[in-house]
Structure formats: C-alpha cells, structure tokens
Design a protein around this nucleic acid. Structure first.
Lengths: 253, 253
DNA sequence: GAGTGGTCTAGACCACTTT
DNA sequence: AAGTGGTCTAGACCACTCT
C-alpha cells in the first residue's frame, strides 16, 4: 500500500505543510540533511524531492543558504494553446476541415515582417475553416515560408492539419503566441457563420525551426462559441506532481 | 570552460540530435546504459538527463521498452496569466487602481454557483479599475467568499491588489481560468474608456484555498489595448532547460 | 534471459554563505 | 568551522517487455 516512491513521500510531506499553512511564503523548509534524518532516506532522495518542488515553482533553493517557500504561487498561471484538430477529437467530436485557399504569394507588409522575409520572397497562403460537428470553430489563416515547405501545394489540408504537416517536415523549436479580442471583417464573419457584432478570439502564432520563423498564423474563433481555458492545481495527496491541463474549448452552453 | 554539469552535457547531446533532425519524432533515443558508455557518466546521471527531458515533454519513456522522441512537440504551448499590477510595474510603468465599489452582498445566480455557495450566503464585491500610466487597462469585477476574508471591507484596494490581499490571507492552491472575447456592456465600456463596438478580452478566474473556491473574478480588458502573449523555446545549446516567459501585455502600437 | 526504465543508497567532492 | 545546496558515482534491487 505504501508503494509510493520515497522521493514522492518526501514531496508529500513538504506539500502537506504548505497546504496546511504550517509553512508560509518565504519560510524556511527543512534542509536535505534534516529530511534525511526525519524521513529515513538518503540525501539523493531528499535532494530529488526538493529539487522537483523547486522546478515546479513551489520552493526556492539557494546554495549555501537554504530552501524556502516560493513567494507568488498564485500570480502566474498557465494556459495552453493546443492543436485544434486534436482538441476536437479529444472531446470525442468530429473534426472536419474545409480548404478555402491554397496558393503561392509574394510576401508583403505584416507577413513579410512576421516571417522576416525580404519584400517579394514567396510564401504559401493557406486558408482553412475547421469545424467541430459541422459547426465552424476556427478560421486558420496561415502563411508559410516557401523555402521551408516546397511541397506545400500538393498537400490536402482537409486531411492533414497545416500544423501537423509543418511539424512533420522538421521539428518546430520555438513558438510565439498572442491572444486578443478583435472584431472580424466580413469574410471572417461569413466563414465562421457569426452574427453581426460578435467579436473574435484571435490567436496569432509564429513558429520557428532552426532559428528561422517558418510560419505565421492568425486563428480566428467565434467569441460566442470558443474560449481558452486552463486549470492549475498542485496534487495534494494522491497524484503525481502537478496537474496542468487546459484546452481550447468549445463553450458548452 | 566545460563547467556545465554532466547531466546537462548529456541533455545537450540529445537535444543536439533533436534539433539537427538526426532524431525524428518517435525515434528511439539512446538508452541509459548506452549513454553511460558513450558519455562516460554514471547511470544516475544519464537517468537524470533523460528524466528531465521527459519531464519537459521532449521525450517519452516507457519502462521495459525504451526512450523515444515525443510526438507533438509543437502542439501545446503555454500562456501565463499574471497579476496585473506586477505586469505593469515590470514594464516600468505606473500602476494605479481606482476602487469603484466595495460592499457585502448576498450571492446569487452565477456568483453563488461559481463559488459553490448556498443562495443567500454572503460575498464581498470588489470593483476596481487598473490603470497603466493613467490609461484604463483592466476592470476587475471580483467576488470573494465572505467567510474567507472577514476584514475585506477594511482594505484599501487602491494600495493592495485584491489578488495580493487574498494570497496574503492564505496560500491559494488552485486556479481556473478562461479567456474569451466578448462585447462589454455600457458600464464596462465607460469604465475602460472604450470606443463603441470595441470588444473585450475577458479573463475569468476562480481560485481555491484548501479545497474551497474563495474568489471569482471577471477581468475585462479593452481589445484594442491588450493582449495575452507567450513564448516557448527550448534552450538549444547555451542555457538551462526551458525558457518560458509571457506577459499580459499592453499592446505597443 | 537480456534489456529497459524506476528507484534507492552511502559516500564523496565542490562552491558557497553564515557564524 | 559548520551548514547548505549541486553534483556525481558504483552498485544495487525491482517490475516490466521483448525475443
């Protein structure tokens, strides 16, 4: 029954004191050697427990000084931006994609800047509507550096997501996101079947591969049907370490 | 010069193969014992390297089988929701808060549900406008379980952020967020000095302490002036492990 | 049975800050 | 000098999977 690893037991012991309030922010946490004695573990095991709690942001460790309760557990929480097709499937719903446009263009203005292209370098322009159970849920307006994806025009993006296609070509290594509220133009309104006056949740994403920005996407979502959600909870007694899940969710009601 | 810890050298060795493309998604990564021989380290050191890369989501380990390159490195990226006052100060700007309302109320409808209160249990209602260099940037509409914060009415929320006040009372342990685009009502429009027809980026946040939801907040931000941004980048050669930063940013231009 | 990851130990050396 | 965290090792036992 006490099958939990020893380092996890040490973590639980410390976590319990955090949660009970016995240890407050900036308080000193038992040192590795103190835990070695109290919990009858080796120092490597105590070290792993405290190091992981440090990595998780709950503790702050200072070599030569000690280990302390971190200050701002509550201030910085996490949202994740997922692949839309995976999200839909994870909800057990049907994903369908409709390709509205797939062409090669010269990069101009914002696109050229976002992808760090010289004016006139080529990009592929992909415009796809993603549907969940036939309800439009995302308009993907994506530009891809042409040099990076020479066979882009031959893809069927109704079958393979542009995002999946890109990460197949080469591992993507960096991403940058921004989320904002914006009013859609007429075309976006139409493609997402939105009511007039309804705002969009607009996610902009840039991805890098080997130091070069290779893709820039504007992901429009109808404000009435979508939200980005996240939950953040240290696992008290039972589970592993942290439960962090979130989803690009279709609003239920 | 080669002062980097051995486990980090092992991580770098594996990372280099991920980044060069020598190892693709689902490929098998050298086992701990293979790394022990190739890198001249002990197995504990090889184990730490692979375990950390696993924790970071880059590798998948299966006991009895092997270690493999993770599948969807690019699909799930992170945004963080920060404390507004800290964010403003971090940008070197001036934060000011104007308290519009501070009162005790009976919980009804959505508020009672969100805080899991019986109809009629009391909440404190806090309404504050946060300004960055005198420009309204967030309307905080917050409800706090009355039992949790008996001295709430005596606080000066122009000086201490409600969020900071709450985490002073007791460590907050769980948080739930949703981000959506919505049209503001007339009062929100006025308090944030928004143009007619401009949408809001609306962050809703619930926080828990010791298993009870203690606070529910609607954070309205003018769509034209705010966005939530995030960046995600594994540190290739030089740095620690991961660089994950993000901010609730005032849009620059 | 050979190989894998998962864990644990007892001891070690180091650089650092505190007293 | 004593205490702290940071790292590393050589060996060990286990449960598991694959062949």
């Amino acid at each position: 029954m006490n099958s939990k690893p020893r380092y996890q037991q040490v973590k639980d012991y410390v976590l319990a004191q955090l949660e009970s309030g016995a240890l407050q922010a900036k308080d000193r946490v038992p040192s590795e050697n103190e835990l070695v004695e109290k919990m009858n573990v080796s120092r490597m095991t105590a070290n792993r427990a405290l190091r992981e709690l440090n990595d998780e942001g709950l503790l702050v460790r200072i070599a030569g000084v000690g280990t302390f309760v971190a200050d701002f557990k509550a201030t910085s929480h996490v949202l994740e931006v997922h692949n839309i097709a995976d999200e839909i499937k994870r909800r057990g719903h049907e994903h369908a994609a409709l390709v509205l446009q797939l062409s090669r263009q010269h990069a101009r203005g914002e696109i050229a800047r976002a992808l760090q292209l010289g004016q006139g370098e080529d990009v592929f322009h992909i415009l796809v509507v993603h549907r969940e159970n036939d309800i439009p849920i995302q308009l993907e307006d994506r530009y891809v550096r042409a040099m990076f994806a020479p066979d882009c025009l031959e893809q069927d993006f109704a079958v393979i997501t542009p995002s999946a296609y890109l990460s197949n070509i080469s591992p993507l290594q960096e991403a940058e996101h921004s989320v904002q509220a914006a009013m859609p133009n007429a075309a976006v309104t139409r493609h997402l079947r939105m009511k007039a006056g309804e705002p969009c949740l607009l996610v902009m994403r840039r991805t890098w591969s080997r130091g070069l920005p290779v893709s820039f996407a504007r992901l429009h979502h109808p404000g009435s049907r979508y939200e980005l959600t996240g939950r953040f909870a240290p696992a008290n007694s039972g589970n592993n370490e942290y439960t962090q899940f979130s989803e690009l969710g279709r609003r239920e009601q």
